Simulated scan of single mutants.
Amino acid sequence: RQRVAMGRAIVRTPKVFLFDEPLSNLDAKLRSSTRREILLLHKRLNATMLYVTHDQTEALTLADRIVCMSMGHVQQIGTPLELYDTPANLFVAGFIGLPPMNLFDVEIRDGKAVCAEFTAELTAHEKDMLAGYEGRTVTMGVRPENAVPGGDITVQVISNENLGQNTLVNGTVGKHKITCKFRDWCSYKYGDTVKVSFNKKHFFDKETTNAIRA
């Protein structure tokens, strides 16, 4: 029915298409193939398309620009990469990305991000960016692929999910839950420990939840 509806719309040569969650009732395989059809249709017709979805995979793969909304309010407008790489606030950071971003409450102290379970070194850029937050608590976000093997932070493994080209390692750092996305095939078991470090970090103001920028 989705294909028929798109065909009827195409023959009318509209300047703007409106898709309201067109793939929500399809199974995973058909959803993937239909998503590719919509992408090719967009390229071929060179028409404006407004696409409403709760599925971030659809948003990230189809969009030239995304409007991320919550409770009727715009949270951020930008390219898929901008929303993923530089989220404007905690909502966007937690909503965009699968698995979601790991979040920790840390105190900025002497050029480090400190919590009870670990201390993360800050880069020179991060130190400058957080200069006004010395002695204050902020929220630090780390995407799963940015928690990399090797370092001083100890993860207690809960589960190990092999996905072929990478592995999701779910665990805890003290009281904090964490998901790490390693490139290699791993065979960790429940109760194992693995040392990690964070090669990229995001910081958010605790009161406003907005991203802290330089």
Rank of each mutant, 00 (worst) to 15 (best):
T167C: 06
T119P: 01
A93M: 05
D128N: 10
V155W: 04
A120W: 04
D205A: 03
T208Y: 01
E107T: 04
E207V: 07
D152H: 08
N146K: 08
A131Y: 02
R136P: 01
G97I: 06
K112Y: 01
F204N: 01
G150R: 05
R109G: 00
Y84H: 10
T154F: 02
Y188C: 06
E145N: 01
G132K: 07
G132Q: 08
Y188M: 08
F104M: 06
P80I: 09
Y190P: 00
V155A: 04
R213W: 04
G111H: 04
F104G: 01
D184Y: 01
L83S: 10
A116I: 06
V148T: 14
L122A: 07
G111R: 05
E126T: 05
D192H: 02
S159P: 11
G94C: 07
P87L: 11
E126A: 03
S197V: 00
F91H: 11
A131V: 04
M140L: 06
V157N: 11
I96M: 06
G174N: 12
V173K: 02
A88G: 12
A93W: 06
P99N: 09
T154A: 11
K189S: 15
V173L: 09
C115H: 04
V169A: 05
N210K: 13
F104R: 00
K195M: 13
G150A: 12
M140N: 04
L83P: 08
L130N: 06
M140Q: 03
N166Q: 15
V142L: 09
I178Q: 03
Y84I: 08
G171D: 11
A113E: 11
F104D: 08
N89K: 05
T119M: 03
I178E: 07
K177T: 14
V148A: 11
